[in-house]
Write a protein that binds this DNA or RNA. Structure first.
Lengths: 371, 371
DNA sequence: CTGAAAGCGCTTACAG
DNA sequence: CTGAAAGCGCTTACAG
């Protein structure tokens, strides 16, 4: 076979106009009725020729192409935090497949633009082969921004786009939003005056619930170990912890920021101070909770020091904490996005928070009588 | 901001024609020279307006859009064999990013077409929301084929496509190939008279090398345990094993097909028969080698039964075998595909086999003197 | 009930 | 050295 059949070919075969073919195949027959016989003839011809609409042309002509973008600011397949992202991707793919959407993975700013001179920075080279020259000069940051912008704009090839990542490049996102392009962030966002649609996780409630459990078990000397990094998912957890501490009239000075390497020393000190329970943040890399669990393993006499994680550490199903609904996060984000794409009217941004499932675990015990 | 600036806007701003803008921005200035002043004016206007070419229009106008497709016949993010595919995806993304290519993940046949009636099977519904009705009737297989065809044709939205999967749907692939569409399979393929370009793994050589090692260690009573499933990666391994057995003048009746559940019994019997070494195929799910390692754990006296895996079993770095260069597989496939896309002339299909790295491991010992 | 025409934003001969 | 025109394969008013 030579070339893919197009509507014109079907039209010729069925003896109608190309317009009619388009009408029949796209089903956009609002108000109009095509005669059933024409309809059948066209359908038959289309099937015979093995017609499949050209998604590019479809999209250019301003209809939809059933592709949704996935934009990650780093790598879509990270190797260090794969356990974290993979389930989200699985959810995205599942729901996308269920809704008949293909996925476009934008490979972020790793592309050709990086390091090219100004003249060519605005476009990809024709042969797509220009070598990547990573420059560390002063303009790197500026270029990076420009790249983001360009990369984010490319996003519009799809009907809408999912965004991942710790930071929001406000200018391009604002631009997309302003142009009415459907987009949904994965993870709660409060930038741009709360105008960013997202599907996130209710870390506040889940974290408060964990502290509540400790309090119910009689703990009052609690420490909360969090990462030094400032992501919204971190501060949400901290807010939950503080809220629960406050309502239980615990000292609100329980929050401690620490790097992985400091955890060992902290645990020792806390034990001397009579701390009976430690709560630790679970981050995407999982190294902080791992450090704590390791530190605690050495010193812990069963029942003497309770431990809880704000999340679910890898390979430690026994630890008390909560499960982040990652797969559902992906699924739901796709659904919200597709809703946005298919609903014509511009509604206010949909912002969804998913609940976590508590993990009872076995690392929260009663306060040791000796303490 | 309202609408994205297009070439016409730049043209107006720079006082030139849209054609000139296209020429300058795309760099397709073969043979012709644009005056440097015009060039600068256009470039400046483009930058000022924040121009980024519309990838859809670019593609429709028959140029490239720097998107490469990834077509998996099942799920792109499988949950049961994730350890197998993930590194390949990582490699694909890395190289795609390096070459400035975006990735389009085609969500296979899970889409809307499944179960829709004939009239609408050839297209996606306009609103993308039609419920999925899974039918189990007689036509299911036929429809499945039709779906594959449609889904595979959709592939052409990209500049080229990578294909994964155990089977080759010959008709649509042949059609794509015939139309000159660039495609590369991941994994060796011998269908369609060897006309399918691929990047695969040299399992034959790697497997033979493993048997050679056992022979060098003095083993002659060897069994090769393979899955009942018939994939090319299985038969390649078997060929390597048989070739090595033959050249060592071992009995060529060493191949045993078995399901996971039968492994325990087999191992016991082999030990009674005086077998000194067992080689097992590593499949994508890894269950067969896991079953063997488990069975052997119980009975093995160190040095009494040597074990080797044709691959690298998860969580068992100590096992002798070889490492499949999965990440490189992904990277290389992208490179071959992009080469094919950018090279104008139709050359013969590029078929690449990658070497595996031997894993020395510690599970191959000398033949026990008692045996 | 159906068709001719314009247009989506580009690229690519073809003129001048 | 630069522009007018056709065309990529669709959709969408607009006529009839």
């Amino acid at each position: 076979m030579a070339r893919a059949p197009r509507q014109a070919d079907i039209a010729a075969a069925a003896g109608v106009s190309q317009t009619t073919v388009s009408l029949i195949l796209s089903g956009n027959t609002d108000g109009m009725r095509l005669s059933e016989s024409t309809r059948q003839r066209v359908l038959k011809a289309a099937e015979k020729l093995g017609y499949v609409p050209d998604p590019v042309a479809t999209r250019l002509a301003s209809a939809r192409n059933h592709m949704i973008g996935v934009y990650t600011f780093a790598s879509a397949f990270p190797t260090d935090v794969d356990g974290f992202y993979y389930p989200i991707l699985v959810g995205i793919e599942e729901e996308a497949a269920a809704l008949g959407q293909d996925l476009v993975l934008f490979t972020g700013t790793g592309g050709l633009e990086a390091g090219l001179d100004d003249k060519t920075a605005i476009r990809r080279t024709a042969d797509g082969k220009a070598a990547i020259r990573r420059t560390a000069d002063d303009k790197a940051a500026i270029r990076r921004t420009a790249d983001d912008k360009a990369a984010i704009r490319r996003t519009r090839i799809a009907d809408g786009c999912l965004f991942f990542g710790r930071h929001v490049p406000e200018e391009p996102i604002d631009w997309l939003l302003g142009s009415g392009f459907p987009l949904v962030y994965i993870g709660r966002r409060d930038e741009l005056d709360g105008r960013i649609p997202f599907v996130g996780v209710d870390y506040v409630a889940a974290s408060a619930a964990v502290v509540d459990r400790l309090v119910s078990a009689g703990h009052r000397e609690i420490r909360y170990l969090r990462s030094v990094d400032d992501a919204l998912s971190s501060s949400d957890r901290e807010r939950g912890v503080l809220a629960a501490a406050k309502s239980a009239r615990l000292s609100e000075r329980l929050v401690v920021r620490a790097a992985d390497s400091e955890v060992g020393g902290l645990v020792e000190r806390w034990r001397e101070e009579g701390v009976t329970a430690v709560v630790v943040e679970e981050t995407d890399t999982g190294t902080l909770s791992a450090a704590l669990l390791e530190a605690v393993k050495g010193v812990r006499v069963p029942g003497e020091l309770s431990v809880a994680v704000l999340g679910q550490p890898k390979d430690h199903p026994e630890v008390s904490g909560f499960e982040v609904p990652r797969r559902e996060l992906g699924r739901r984000a796709v659904r919200v996005l597709v809703d946005q794409i298919t609903s014509s009217g511009a509604r206010r941004p949909e912002q969804v928070l998913l609940d976590c499932t508590p993990i009872t675990g076995s690392t929260i015990g009663p306060v040791a009588p000796s303490a």
